[in-house]
Design a protein around this nucleic acid. Sequence first.
DNA 1: GAAGTAATACTACCAAGGTAGTAATTGCTT
DNA 2: AAGCAATTACTACCTTGGTAGTATTACTTC
Lengths: 126, 126
Amino acid sequence: MQGNCIHRLGDLQLRILQVLWDDGPSSVAAVQRATGEDLAYTTVATMLRKMEARGLVTHHESGRRYIYRAAVKRDEVTHGIADRLVDRLFHGSLTGAVNHLLETREVDPDELDDLERLIQRHRMRS
Amino acid sequence: MQGNCIHRLGDLQLRILQVLWDDGPSSVAAVQRATGEDLAYTTVATMLRKMEARGLVTHHESGRRYIYRAAVKRDEVTHGIADRLVDRLFHGSLTGAVNHLLETREVDPDELDDLERLIQRHRMRS
DNA sequence: GAAGTAATACTACCAAGGTAGTAATTGCTT
DNA sequence: AAGCAATTACTACCTTGGTAGTATTACTTC
């Protein structure tokens, strides 16, 4: 929920949230399966419990088993993490960030087209 | 140096590296001052020692005092962290990342111009 | 109803970041 | 020389993510 420092997620925590966002409410077993990684059942269960304590997920019972669901929105988290990065590395400069990404990644012309369209679309808006 | 998981830096570690990149080789006291944060002298000294153990910085002695310098390049680190983020959050899609940044940040028209120029410049290159 | 199985709860550990106190050293200043 | 100030070394502690074992509980199946 609230000011929970939504950025600062470990790899496993993010992985689990992604499963819950993609697949919707899931049992521990389902999450374990969906992560694709080779983790003990109890590892996933423990992490889910820790995440619930932090307000990242909630659960309700279905029979004797817990069904977990994400308590934070994908956009919130993505936004939080991305913003934090832009601030930490580029002093909040979006241009700096995009520039760096363009410099250091392979970008094919199609992607450049996409980007240009994005910018056009944004220009309309303001 | 090498395979040291250059992404995965704590806030303080990144902060310290930024000081060393900006100001060049510095004593502990200088780093402490430059971080701007209110940290005990020994906190900075300890962190520098831990970072040296991880290969992030090196030191040489000048009289009885240590002068630390960054052992990793700014670009390496920035690239590592940014790449990791794009992979973690956007499945490696640069367009997805940029799109998200545009959606969630205030972007003024000047910045859009800058971005467009960036893209043009990149188009030339390929 | 006895045995097996699946689920959760509890506990424990390790590593790393972060923070800082205390001790020891050494050099400078009066 | 005596004492103060700066500096490094060592140690300690807390938190969090990550990983998983063991114990307990409860449902299912024969």
